[in-house]
Design a protein around this nucleic acid. Structure first.
Length: 600
DNA sequence: GCCGTTTTCGGCCCGACTGTTTTCAGTCG
């Protein structure tokens, strides 16, 4: 039958957790939840792990023991497992679908099913509209209205947003909060701070001595569309743009602990708390605490014992990690991909910095589908702090973009050379390289002849069609392109467009081996919807010693700003400066390409 | 059901907010 993917396994485990919770079983729900988190954090498919290392491999996954390993094995073979089916038979309800409604959890699902036979989201909506829910004990008109609103929101929200698209608005909101007179400090935490390629909501942390007033000002912002909850220290709202935003206010002595807590990831936080417990301490969003026993004299001369918690860290994140015996862990690494172990052993990578790029090797112009001329792009790149760029317009197979043939490429090359001579005598100190984004045909051949490729400074090859080939065919196709002695790098390897188009199927291990063997560079495409290659592949490249570049894929002068998202992506993949070739000076960079053309 | 630099048994992350209740369970992050 079907073999389950990690996300299918994780959601089945989550559903099992909910079913156990409804059954009033203790501790199992948390165990299944934890196992789901462990599966989600994997950088390899569970199916692969099982094929390679069997049951033992599965049991090595954090949160997975003998029992759940058996369930996973069953899921890999049949998509479901016996215990799940047994539970589901008892409560034949679409638990996950119902729990997706804000404010609805397992207990509520159980009650709704028992009393009103609610099994699906549709049933729930009907029951609420018919006014049946308010009549249940422990429910009222308010709960019913909240459920209806939750269903509405669920219908509208398109799930997670692409970071690069949402970030400008998020930063505007952050600035608004920072400018409240009572706010001493405000910062966006959560997945935005971890720079995940997509984000689910916005977590803002603020320091203030007057939280009440801060909350009032926040609720009065024009972008607040609905208030889910609002208290002294925590407010949760829906914004007019459809995103949810969470504002927390803490005192300054708790800023580091709160920042750490609200940055996540959740699994990372739980691991830190467990470390604290092992040391006999307690970690929460207000700080790291040590219990101190105080002797109090009472009136009848018997002494009474009282426990007082003393804060031992929490004003800064650095403090917190240090006290726990760890070196500071950058937010982009807090995904439980081995960062805690590495921090303990002081073997964390020294991540590439946000100002480390000196070049950009994928830039489009108005010769094809870009908005600006070569010179305009060069000037914008210079303004963005770059020392060199490669002009890489599309080649002819992409007729829709006005793709270039050999003749047009040679003409463009001449123009670039002329521009470089002209630039030498101006204030712009930028070097423009002649390149191309050459199209990889279905069979792995290229649509520009080798003699012309040989004349270019930089050749990037990319897939723009036949996205549905089998894994084996697709892998072979790309390896053939990498074997071309003129192809310096592969642009946006997997072709994914987040929320729009799936990645092509590839044997990534084999691709990385081929890149290493042929000396081909893999691009980290910084265009927010691409973020291609993804973090776990970057980590594999780092481990394999495959070099990468970070490119903006700019189609307009404003697009050089994308580079920071590419750097974030590289950092999430544990990349150091030395792994990314365009942190080098131009002459050093060119030495790493397959054929240096001598134009340097 | 998972896990072990206190443990192979006996623990299991922690606090805020809501709604419907009279002291708290459920939900969320």
């Amino acid at each position: 039958m079907k073999h389950s993917t990690n996300s299918e396994i994780a959601s089945r485990l989550r559903e099992t957790a909910a079913l156990y919770e409804m059954d009033d079983v203790a501790f199992k729900p948390r165990a299944y939840e934890k196992a789901a988190l462990g599966i989600e954090a994997l950088d390899e498919e569970a199916g692969e792990i099982f094929r390679a290392r069997g049951r033992e491999g599965l049991e090595a996954i954090p949160g997975v023991g003998r029992g759940i390993a058996e369930h996973i094995e069953e899921m890999l073979a049949h998509g479901v497992f016996n215990e799940y089916e047994r539970l589901k038979k008892k409560v034949p309800v679409e638990v996950l679908e119902l729990m997706a409604v804000e404010g609805v959890g397992p207990r509520m699902v159980k009650m709704l099913w028992q009393k009103l036979k609610v099994r699906t989201l549709r049933d729930l909506e009907h029951a609420a509209r018919a006014g049946k829910i308010r009549k249940l004990s422990h429910f009222g008109a308010k709960s019913e209205a909240n459920i209806l609103r939750g269903i509405e929101f669920l219908k509208q929200s398109g799930g997670r947003r692409v970071l690069g698209v949402a970030l400008p608005e998020i930063e505007r909101l952050e600035r608004s909060v920072r400018e409240f007179p009572e706010v001493d400090e405000a910062v966006v935490a959560g997945s935005v701070r971890r720079r995940k390629e997509t984000i689910g909501d916005i977590d803002i942390l603020a320091v203030s001595k007057n939280p009440k007033r801060v909350m009032e000002r926040f609720l009065a912002l024009p972008e607040v569309a609905h208030v889910y909850a609002s208290g002294e220290t925590k407010t949760l709202v829906r914004l007019t743009n459809g995103l949810d935003a969470d504002l927390r206010v803490v005192p300054s002595e708790s800023f580091g602990a709160a920042l750490n807590y609200f940055t996540g990831s959740k699994a990372h936080n739980v691991a830190l708390r467990e470390m604290a417990i092992k040391k006999g301490w307690k970690l929460n969003e207000y700080g790291l605490y040590k219990a101190q026993i105080l002797k109090l004299k009472s009136q009848n001369h018997n002494s009474k014992l009282k426990i007082k918690n003393i804060q031992i860290a929490g004003k800064t994140e650095e403090d917190l990690y240090r006290k726990l015996g760890l070196v500071y862990i950058e937010p982009e690494l807090r995904e439980m991909m081995g960062e805690i172990e590495a921090a303990r052993n002081n073997t964390l990578p020294k991540l590439i910095g946000y100002g480390d790029l000196r070049g950009d090797l994928q830039v489009q112009t108005d010769w094809t589908d870009g908005d600006n001329s070569i010179e305009e792009m060069a000037a914008a790149a210079r303004k963005a702090g770059l020392e060199y760029i490669a002009i890489t317009d599309h080649t002819r197979s992409l007729a829709m973009t006005g793709g270039m043939d050999e003749k047009k490429l040679l003409r463009q090359m001449a123009e670039i050379h002329a521009l470089n001579s002209k630039i030498q005598n101006t204030k712009y100190k930028i070097r423009v390289l002649a390149g191309a984004e050459v199209n990889i045909r279905k069979d792995g051949s290229l649509d520009i002849v080798d003699e012309v490729l040989a004349k270019l400074d930089v050749v990037g090859a990319a897939v723009h069609s036949h996205f549905k080939l089998s894994r084996a065919e697709q892998t072979k196709r790309l390896i053939r392109a990498m074997e071309n002695p003129h192809v310096d790098m592969i642009f946006h390897l997997t072709g994914r467009l987040i929320n729009k188009r799936e990645a092509i199927e590839l044997d990534i291990e084999e691709i990385i081996r081929a890149a290493k063997r042929t000396g081909t560079v893999l691009e980290i495409n910084a265009s927010p919807e691409r973020a291609d290659i993804k973090d776990e592949y970057i980590k594999k490249c780092v481990e394999a010693g495959v070099k990468m570049v970070i490119d903006s894929d700019a189609h307009a002068i404003s697009h050089f700003a994308f580079l920071s998202f590419g750097i974030a992506q590289a950092r999430r993949g544990w990349a150091e400066k030395k792994n990314i070739l365009n942190t080098l000076s131009l002459s050093q960079f060119l030495k790493h390409l397959k054929n240096t053309t001598g134009s340097e």
